[in-house]
Design a protein around this nucleic acid. Sequence first.
RNA 1: GCCGGGAUGGCGGAAUUGGUAGACGCACGGGACUCAAAAUCCCGCGGUGGCAACACCAUGGGGGUUCGAUUCCCCCUCCCGGCACCA
Length: 868
Amino acid sequence: MESQYRPRELEPRIQQHWAATRAFVAPDASPKPKYYCVSMLPYPSGKLHMGHVRNYTINDALYHFMRMKGFNVLFPMGWDAFGLPAENAAMANKVPPAKWTRDNIAYMKKQCQAMGWAIDWTREVATCSPDYYRWNQWFFLRLREKGIVYKKSGVVNWDPVDMTVLANEQVIDGRGWRTGAVVEKREIPMWYMRITDYADELLDSLDGLGWPEQVKQMQRNWIGRSEGVEFTLPYDEETARRMNDGKRGLKVFTTRADTIMGITFAAVAAEHPLAAEAAKGNAKLAAFIEECKKGGTQEADFATMEKKGMPTGLSVRHPFTEQGIEVWVGNYVLIGYGEGAVMAVPGHDERDFAFAKKYDLPIKQVIDVDGKAYSFDAWAPWYEEAGRNINSGPYDGLPQKAAIDAIAGALEKLGLGRKRVQYRLRDWGISRQRYWGTPIPIVLCPKCGEVGVPDDQLPVRLPEDLVSDGSGSPLAKTPSFYETRCPKCAGPARRDTDTMDTFVDSSWYYLRYVSANAKTMVDERARYWMPMDQYIGGIEHAILHLLYARFWTKAMRDLGLIGIDEPFANLLTQGMVLNHIFSRRTGKGGIEYFAPEEVETTVDAEGKITGAKLKADASPIDYEGIGTMSKSKRNGVDPQDMIEEYGADTSRFYVMQANPPTDTMLWSDQSVAGSFKFLRGLWATVHQHVEAGIVPRFMSGELTTELSQLRFKLHKTIEKVADDYGRRLQFNTAIAAIRELLNLHETLKDRSPVARAVAQELLEDAVLLLSPIVPHIATALWSGLRPGTELIDQPWPAVDPLALVQDEIELVVQVNGKLRGHIRVPASATRDHIEALALKDEAVQKFVNGQTPKKVVVVPGRLVNVVV
RNA sequence: GCCGGGAUGGCGGAAUUGGUAGACGCACGGGACUCAAAAUCCCGCGGUGGCAACACCAUGGGGGUUCGAUUCCCCCUCCCGGCACCA
C-alpha cells in the first residue's frame, strides 16, 4: 500500500475499474430484493453546482449502503433538457439551444463520472431526445381521446414591446425583464389536463406514502378540497336584457352558505362577460377594466396588491329576498378561478369587509358568535368564526352546519343551486408559446378543426437549428415546421406551434429509466422496479413536480400501461444550498445578476452584508440577500475547483458531514480542508497498521478492559451508522460517530497480537462504514487491509451482540431536574436499588439537605431525579 | 397575502420517543517539535462570578404545561421554500 494519499491518481483509476467491470449496471431481474433510488433529474445548465453534489451524493450513499445490505440497487441519471434557459443562452450566444444543451450534458456527465457516483449510465435519458418526447406526444393523444386533455383559454403574461409571452420568472416587479415594459394579462387558447378529475384520489392516497409530513400537508392544502354551495344570483330585468346570454344569472360558489343573508354586493373579475357588457358606454369602467389587465399573473401579486373596485351599474337579485344586489368589478377576483364571480358578505369575510369599508358599502351581521359584540367599525378575526344565524329570517338560531344544509336545500328547491365540492387545485395548462420543448402533436385544419397527429407520424420532430430573437416563438416563424397537411382531409393545415410545459417531461422519466430503449412508452421492466423505493430532491419541488408526477402515474395506470397507483414510496426532500445574490438594474428597467466571486462586500459588526461593489470596476450593486443556487441568479458554486484541489471523496465527505440533508445549507467553503485532513489521516492510520503486518480480524477471546471498551464502541457505532444511513437518512451524525470511533482507536497504544486483531477488525469495519460516503479511498484502503478482495463485494458489517454486553452502566442523578452527579450501577439493578444508590450519593445529599424527597423519578438506563 | 419549514457558542451542527444542552468538526488561543515556516501532536475554547471547588445564567423574544422543555401548547419577531410559465 502506498504511504501517501493521492486522490488525483487514485480516483480516476478506481472509476475506470468500475466502468470496465460495469460495476453499477443493475440487472432487470435478480434473486435479491430490488431497491430503486432516484434523484430528481438535473437541468443541464452548464456545470454541476453544490446542490447537485449534495443531491447525488445522498443518492450514492444510499446506493452503496443498500447494496451492502444485499439489495439489487438501481441509481439512474437523466437530463431535464428542455426549458427556458437554453433559449436565453441561445439568444445571448447565438447558438441553437440543442447544441448548447448537448454540450452542457456532455460536460456535466463527465463531472458526474469524476464524482464517482454509482450511476447506471446504460439507462440515461435526455428529455430533448425524440425517442423520449415522442411518448409525451403519444400519451397526450391518448389522454385527449379520453377527454383528460382539453382546450380552453388561459391567462398569460404579455410583453407589449417584445410582443411575446413571458414566464413568471421573466416578470420583475410587473415589468418585462428585457424591455422593462409594463406586463399585461392576455387570454389565449391552451391545452389543459384534467388533474382535477383526480383531486380526490391525489388527496386520499397521500396518507399511505412514506413522505415527510410537511410535504403531504402542503399537497393537501394545495389541492384544497372544500365543500360548499354553488348558486345563481338571478339577473334583474335590466341585466338580463343586456347580458342576453340565456343564463338566469350570475353563478358563484361559497363555502359559507350560512352567511347568504348577509350578502350586500357581488363582485366579478375584470375579464368577466358581465364586466365587459357593463363597460359598453361606460368609459370610466372601461378604463378601470383596462387597468386591471396591467401586471402579471402571479398569485403573490394578487394577494398583496391593493384591492380596488368599481360598480358596474348592473344588478342581480338575492335568491331568497329578491332584493337588488349591486355587481362590482373587483381587481382581486380571478377569472380563472371558480366562476370568476363572488358573493360578498362584508359582515363575515375579511376581504369583503375591507372592500365595503373602502367603498362605503353596507355591512350586515348575520352570524352570532357566543353573543360577542360585533362592531361595524373595525374587523376582528372572530367575525369569520362559525356561530348561529341571526337577522336571517327562517334560518335564525341555526348552527352553521344546519344553516348550510337548510340554505342549500332551499336553493335547490328554487332550482338556483346545489351543494358541490370545490378544489383549490386547477387544471394543468401545458401549452407554452416557446421553442425548446415537446411539440404539441396537433394539426389545425381549416376544415376539420383540431386533429391529432396519427401515431405512425410520431414523433413530431422539433427543428434543432433555430435561434429565438426574443419576440414570440421561432416555431411560429418557421413554415417548414408549421406548414403541413391535415391527417384527415389531406388539405393544407398548420401545426400547433406551442410546446409542452417541461413538467410533462419530468412527470414520467423515472418510468423510462426502467424501460430504457423500449419500443413502447414503458415495458414490463417497470413492473419489476416500480414503485420507486426512494426519491430524493429539493424541497422546492414539494408541490408542482411531485403532484404532476403523481397525477401522470395515475393516468398511465388508467390506460393500463403500469400497475401502480403511486410512483414514489418514500421521499427525501433535500434542503436547498443557498448563496448570496447580487444584482443591478439595467438602464432599460431589466435586471442583471453577478456571481458572488465577482463582488466585494462590506459587513457590519454582526457580519451581515451591508453593501456590495463589483471587483471589476468598483461600481456599487445591490445585495438581495441569500437564496437558492441557480443559473439565472448566477450564484451557483461549481464544485470543479474543489474536485481538482482535493478530489471527489473530499467534496462528497464535506457536503455530507456539514449538516442533515433536509436542512438548508448556506454555502461556505471554510472547512473543506478539514475534510481532506480527515481522509489523509485515515489513510495514514490504515497505512501504519498495514505496514506493521495485517492480521486476521478479531473473532473471540479474552480482552483487556480497554480492548472490550473499544469493541463496545465499534459495534455500537456499526449499529448507529446503519440506523443513520438506513432509517434516519442523516449522514452528518453517522460521520461524527465514525470520527469518535477512530479518535478512540488513536488512543490505543497496546501492540499485543490480540490488540492488533481488534485494530484490524475496527479499521476494516470503519472503512466499510465510510465507504458509502467516500468509495474511492475506501476501495484503496480495503485492498490494503484485505489484499485480493474487493470492497464493492463486501456486505455491511455484522454487529456482535457479545461486544455490546455491559456489566455496569452510568446514570445521571438530578435534584429538582438539575444535574447534580453520576452514579455507576450494575446493568441489572432494580428500581429500588438505583433509588437507594442515588439518595446515598454525596452531591445528592448536599442538595437534598436533610429534607424528605417528595418523589423520586427513575428512568431506566438514563437518570434518577430526586424531587424535594 | 396564503401554505410549509427554520432560528442552539465566533461558525457548521449534536441532543433520534419530554430525560446530562453544546457530541463531532471548523475557526481561534496557548504549548511541543523546528534555525524558521508548513505539516503533525498535546491542551484550552457558551456567558457571568470565583484562586479554586463550585455556583448561577443560557437553545430567536414573551407566556404556559411538566418532577424535568432545544423537544409539547399559545402569542410575537426575523429568515428560507412554494404560490400554478424558473426548474
